[in-house]
């Protein structure tokens, strides 16, 4: 019985730049269970972005192993990587990364375009997800007409629409004020409660406190990996 969604063992990754090799990840091992909510913390240069890229199959690794939903992810061609990303992973970025000339609904529906879902079906589904984010009436608006919090909620809707197993959020609240940050975190927690694992990369303790487990990286190795007791308390309060 294996209930891991992400299983990483002694992962190494270095960037070669001319003669200098920059060893970024120096043997990372971690195991994230299905439906878990984890934050990865670390100062800049700690390797947290690199780790996120590897987990998101945006980048490959040098040695070790990475299993996503029990599938061994090794060096693969881009087409296959794109398919896995589309199927298993939803991305949420600090800078939202919405496509500027597409309206909210089209942005949300885009992952389904790459699954060859027909337009009517994917647009209806997109409206449904926007509705869950409370943005139904903003469906026709371009990203430039929306606030940061709204944009991030659209990005979350886009990440969810392909029914991924994992949400990878890279500083999801980095560009938001504390009020909207809290709202976005609330949404991510709700997403997590629906059974999707959420991994948040952040350097803010406030954000990390909202997750079940906090993994701290330093200089390419895991400094600490511990359960967050305050989260349990919050959950209890919530129930």
């Amino acid at each position: 019985m294996n209930d891991s969604i992400i299983r990483v063992e002694s992962l190494h990754k270095s960037y070669v730049n001319g003669k200098n090799a920059l060893h970024v990840l120096k043997g990372i091992s971690l195991d994230i269970k299905k439906g878990e909510m984890v934050s990865i913390m670390g100062a800049s240069g700690s390797g947290k972005s690199t780790l996120l890229n590897v987990l998101g199959i945006l980048d490959n690794y040098d040695s070790g192993s990475y299993h996503l939903d029990d599938i061994h992810i090794s060096t693969m061609d881009e087409t296959k990587a794109a398919r896995y990303r589309n199927k298993y992973i939803g991305f949420v970025f600090q800078s939202f990364n919405l496509i500027s000339f597409k309206n909210a609904m089209e942005n949300v529906a885009l992952p389904l375009y790459y699954q060859k879902v027909n337009r009517k079906k994917r647009n209806n589904l997109a409206l449904e997800y926007l509705d869950r984010m409370g943005l139904r009436e903003w469906a026709d608006h371009l990203p430039s007409e929306l606030s940061g919090g709204q944009k991030q909620r659209i990005a979350i809707a886009r990440a969810l629409i392909s029914k991924p197993k994992v949400i990878l959020a890279d500083e999801p609240t980095g560009a938001l004020d504390s009020q909207t940050s809290a709202e976005v975190m609330e949404i991510l927690k709700e997403v997590n409660r629906s059974g999707i694992a959420v991994i948040i990369v952040t350097h803010e303790n406030e954000i990390a406190k909202n997750t079940e487990r906090i993994i701290r990286l330093k200089d390419g190795i895991i400094e600490s990996n511990e359960l967050n007791h305050s989260f349990k308390l919050q959950e209890l309060e919530a129930n």
């Binding site: 794109a82 398919r83 496509i99």
Partner: peptide, 16 residues
């Protein structure tokens, strides 16, 4: 570049 990067991140294959 950025838009294409986004598309790729959310599942656009190189061929598409």
């Amino acid at each position: 570049t950025k838009e294409i990067g986004i598309r790729k991140a959310i599942g656009a294959s190189p061929w598409s």
